[in-house]
Design a protein around this nucleic acid. Structure first.
Lengths: 201, 201
DNA sequence: GCGTGCAGGTGACATTGTCAAGTCCGTGTC
DNA sequence: GACACGGACTTGACAATGTCACCTGCACGC
């Protein structure tokens, strides 16, 4: 029954979601998993090991969500757009993972020895999709890099604003309103890019 | 000589900058300030009190940076754009504050009793600038809310990506490259908005 | 039969946030 | 001048945390 590892991971993610990263304690997740305070240590080495494992899981899921969404689209800009929506929706529905993935002090994605391959794969997907859209003529007044960075920044920004509840005027927002906000922002940017390419033609 | 409070605050911000929020310990900041482990308690009530004070300071600075930048511009879109650049540059140069400001588990901006006025002021500035730009015809295919959210998301996104070092291919980026990236992203979006309004005219 | 290594447990240690008392000192007020 | 008072800071204690060193089963190869 090697499922203790996963059980600990799930308990940790749930804790991050409910009370933030600070609430994740080695001993608390052990308690929730019903084992001794040293059992997690055995699987993850140390505290950062748990966070790193969460990030791995998160980036793998993010990659898959983006790729799945992009595959179903039939135009490079739409593929980029749909992947962006998928990115933000993944963040919304996996707040626990997302909070851990992008905090350098918790997980160093770019550790010289032992970089997070899952993160690099997700990054590669983004770059590939943006390059395809750029090549197809979208965002013609921007460089490839410029297009990539604008798209990433916008999608990442709406994700963090939602995950941290910054946009909520009061009390938590409903699921559907959050989903609409994502559409508004990502499709809005997409429309600007499309119009830009039309103007050129 | 009531400067202990500020000294503790500065030490805390420095710690966040260097090692992340998790490194901020009541006792460590006291040690750095050369006082007993209970001195900070006296000024801030509890651990979250320090973080809250950091957020206050941060949002006040952010507001001022945005307002100063917007004032110098002579066109509503340019004002919005310059404020966006100021937002991201404030984040870059005040990473310690920025990390604390937007984490709900650390500081609840929208606490029902005792909301962070400084944060609300910054929010109001953003809304005012976006509304002015929208009224002037920029982003004509977007609603006011849509324009606000896209701009905020993009600017906030590039800020967090830079602050957390996600964009750095390897080792820390140089100051000037980061500054260029901010310009690229924010002015890029601005250009898309301007072009959008031209098409309509 | 026996060693080896993995999965997990026990107990200890320094360190943390917080509580409950102190001490010191400047500022009224009588 | 004596005295109460409250703010600024200290000391000492407590439970909880991450980590270390070491122990217990137990499956496997030979």
């Amino acid at each position: 029954m090697g499922d203790l590892r996963q059980k600990i991971l799930d308990a940790s993610v749930a804790l991050v979601e409910e009370q933030g990263v600070r609430a994740v304690s080695f001993r608390e997740v052990a308690r929730r998993a019903g084992v001794s305070h040293q059992a997690p240590y055995h699987h993850f080495g140390n505290y950062h090991g748990i966070l790193r494992a969460i990030a791995r899981e998160g980036f793998a899921g993010l990659s898959q969500a983006m790729n799945d969404a992009a595959e179903r689209a039939d135009d490079p800009l739409e593929a980029l757009t749909d992947a962006g929506v998928a990115y933000a929706n993944f963040a919304r529905t996996h707040a626990g993972h997302f909070r851990v993935m992008f905090q350098r002090a918790l997980v160093n994605i770019r550790d010289r020895e032992d970089p997070l391959e899952e993160a690099e794969a997700a990054h590669a997907t983004l770059i590939r999709l943006a390059a395809a859209a750029s090549e197809a003529g979208f965002g013609s007044q921007l460089t490839v890099d410029g297009l990539t960075h604008i798209c990433w920044a916008t999608v990442h920004g709406i994700s963090t604003l939602l995950v941290e509840g910054v946009l909520a005027e009061k009390t938590p927002m409903s699921e559907s309103i959050e989903a609409e906000l994502v559409q508004q922002v990502v499709r809005g940017l997409s429309a600007l890019l499309r119009k830009d390419s039309e103007g050129k033609a």
